[in-house]
Amino acid sequence: MRAAQQHITDEELILTMDGELEEPRRGAVDRHLNQCWACRARRAEFERGIENYLAAQRSLDAAVPLPPAAGPTARLRASLDSAMAQEPAGWRSAASRWPRAILAGAAAAAMAVPVGVTLLAWFGTKNLEAPGPLPDARLTPGAVRLISQQQVCVVPAEDEGRLVPAELARRVFEQYRIASPKPRAYEVDYLISPALGGATVLQNLWPVPYSDGVWTSRVKDALEDHLRQLVCAGKLDLATAQQEIATDWIAVYRRYFRTRLPVAAHARFVKDSPWE
């Protein structure tokens, strides 16, 4: 019988099943399928293969659960926002490198909090000369880890990693267009400190010159400690503390310590080491 020579090839059968066979050939294949049981049986076999594949794949997938989408989606939104904010200055290929170590401390790890870093992009209206006691809000809007009030207080403040990796520090200087920073003249400081949930990312770091007036990073450290105490004592909301310190920490300092100039003891407050 002639039909045997005209049987549809496996490839054409697959393409037909998925509607991807081009038109002139398609009509011929359809006609053949109408009359040929053998080819229809092969098509059914392929369909069964698909069915079995999906069932097996589903059970394989079930063995490797994926984290819920909310965290990664928020993380993506944050990096898209930050990419858009940086766009006029040109794309930086490294902009998407986010740290994965989000929740520090074993207690925090035990709680199944979705992992992700969320940017707090508070673009202030001020247009600041950078660097100085206040960062450029466009370059350093502040970024936090997803961490709750309780988690912030579980880990002792001094246990929070405060050391900025050398490569990241280099990029911070680069971002602020400081070509060859003098060693020990700056501290690469967190806008929102890790003890308050701040993230170790470019958007939360800026170079603070030691020589720059009375509002030094040491004074800021004193404020951070104070805010953390308030947060852990339940007197201040963590989000508010983060937002306050990210907007204008000097104004916040003045308000909390009721003073126009830094308290003398705070100026000597030594906590972090300089950038070398």
Binding site: A78, L80, D81, M84, T118, A121, W122, Q243
Partner: peptide, 16 residues
């Protein structure tokens, strides 16, 4: 913790 942070992130800077 999630809701809080996400809300903050979408806060004042809705350039998106």
């Amino acid at each position: 913790a999630w809701i809080q942070s996400v809300r903050l992130a979408r806060g004042p800077a809705t350039a998106s």
